[in-house]
Design a protein around this nucleic acid. Structure first.
Lengths: 194, 194
DNA sequence: ATAAAAATCATCATAAATAGGGATTTTTTT
DNA sequence: AAAAAAATCCCTATTTATGATGATTTTTAT
C-alpha cells in the first residue's frame, strides 16, 4: 500500500505536532513536512510532491479575490483540507475538499482523509455530450452569444454548461479548455482559426 | 509569374467593365469575376480562391457594428481594396488595405495594387520578443492583470501588446491564440493547466 | 415509479476583456 | 543623427464573462 504524502501548514506548534503524531499512527498516510506559513511552504522543494495538503485557513488572505487553491498554487488534482479551530466563513470553508477540526478523534480524521481519496477518484466526472459540444465551441473561439445562437439555446444555458464544464474539469481558462479539447481529440488544430 | 486573381464587387456595369479592361492589360493581375452585390459574391464558389478583392464601399452597411472584413467574410490575409467614386467616411475607408478611385490612371491603379502585394508580404510581421512573452502568458490562461503583475508592467501595456498581437496574427480569440502558441512551439501542453 | 442526472432558463453584481482612440519614451536600424 | 520599431502608459465606452444562487423540465437509469 502506497502512503499518501501529507504537508501540513499550521502556525501552532502544538497542533502541528499533535496532527503529525495522530497521522503517523494512521495507515496509508505519512506527514512529509510541516510549515508555519504559506510562504515557507512555497519556498520549499518538498511542496511539489505532496499528495494532500492540510492547512489552517486563518493563514490565508480571506479577502483575496483568488480562490484558496490559487492562493496556495496547488494543482487541482491534489486535495486541500482545512484545519479548523473556530468559526470560519462558510464561503472559505467550502473551497476546501474536506475539513478536520481540533476536536476530531483519530478515527474521525482518518475517515475524512480516506473518504477524500475515494471522492477524488469519483471526481473524474465525464462531460455530458452537450457539455462536450459547448466545450468544442468554446475551443473554437466562439463567444457565449455565438454558441447560444448556433445551438438554439439561451445564453444562460450556455453559461450554465460552461460552469459545469469548469466544475467537472477543474479548468477555468479558455486556453486550458482549448488544450483539453485538443488533447482529448474533441477538436483538431484546423478547426481553430479565428 | 503567377497572376493574382481579383474579384470585383461593384454595382455599376460601366465601372465594372472599365476596371476589368484596365486590369486585363496590367501584368500580374487577372479579374476572376465581377459581382454587383455582396450577396452575389457570397453565394458564388469563385469567391473562395481570390487573392484580392476590389469593392465599392457603398455596397456595405456603413453603420454596421462589424468591420468591413467581417461583413464580407474575407480572410485576413487577403487584401480588400476600396473602389471610390465620391466622399466616404474616413473611418470606413481606413479599414481597407488600399483605395483606388474612378479618376485613377491605369498606371496609378497598377502601382497601388503592386504596392499592396509588397505590403502584404511585409504584413507577415513577426511578433516581437515581448509580444511572444505576452502571448505565452495568454496561452497559459493568465488574465491581463496577472500578466501585468508577473511582468512588472501596467495592465494598459499588456492590453496594448495584446492588441498588437491580434493585429499581427489576425487571431482574436484566446483559444486561437493558444493554438497558435502551441503550433509555433512557444508553449507546450504541459505548461497549460489552470 | 422514483430517484438521479442532464439540460434548460433566470437574476444580480462584479470582474475582465475589447474596441478605438492617443501619447511618450527607449531601442534599433539605417 | 534621424527614422523606424518596440515598449511603455493612459482614457472612455461597450461588450463579455464569471460567481453565486435558484429553479424547472426532460431524460435516463434503477
Amino acid at each position: 500500500m502506497i502512503e499518501k504524502k501529507i504537508i501540513i501548514i499550521e502556525p501552532g506548534l502544538i497542533v502541528q505536532e499533535g496532527l503529525r503524531s495522530i497521522l503517523s499512527s494512521t495507515n496509508g498516510f505519512v506527514v512529509r513536512h510541516c510549515f508555519s506559513t504559506i510562504e515557507q511552504m512555497r519556498l520549499h522543494p518538498y511542496a511539489n510532491d505532496a499528495d494532500l495538503f492540510i492547512i489552517n485557513p486563518t493563514l490565508l488572505d480571506l479577502h483575496h479575490h483568488n480562490s484558496v487553491r490559487q492562493q496556495l498554487g496547488i494543482k487541482n488534482e491534489i486535495p486541500i483540507v482545512a484545519l479548523i479551530y473556530s468559526f470560519i466563513d462558510h464561503n472559505i470553508v467550502q473551497q476546501f475538499d474536506a475539513e478536520i477540526t481540533i476536536h476530531d478523534s483519530a478515527v474521525q480524521i482518518a475517515n475524512k482523509l480516506v473518504a477524500l481519496k475515494r471522492d477524488n477518484k469519483n471526481e473524474n466526472e465525464e462531460l455530458s455530450e452537450r457539455e462536450k459540444e459547448i466545450l468544442i465551441a468554446v475551443a473554437k473561439g466562439m463567444s457565449n452569444k455565438e454558441i447560444a445562437d448556433s445551438h438554439f439555446i439561451s445564453i444562460h444555458t450556455v453559461i450554465t454548461h460552461r460552469k459545469n464544464i469548469v466544475k467537472k474539469t477543474g479548468i477555468k481558462s479558455v486556453s486550458g479548455l482549448t488544450a483539453y479539447a485538443l488533447v482529448n481529440n474533441l477538436i483538431s488544430f484546423e478547426e481553430i482559426d479565428n
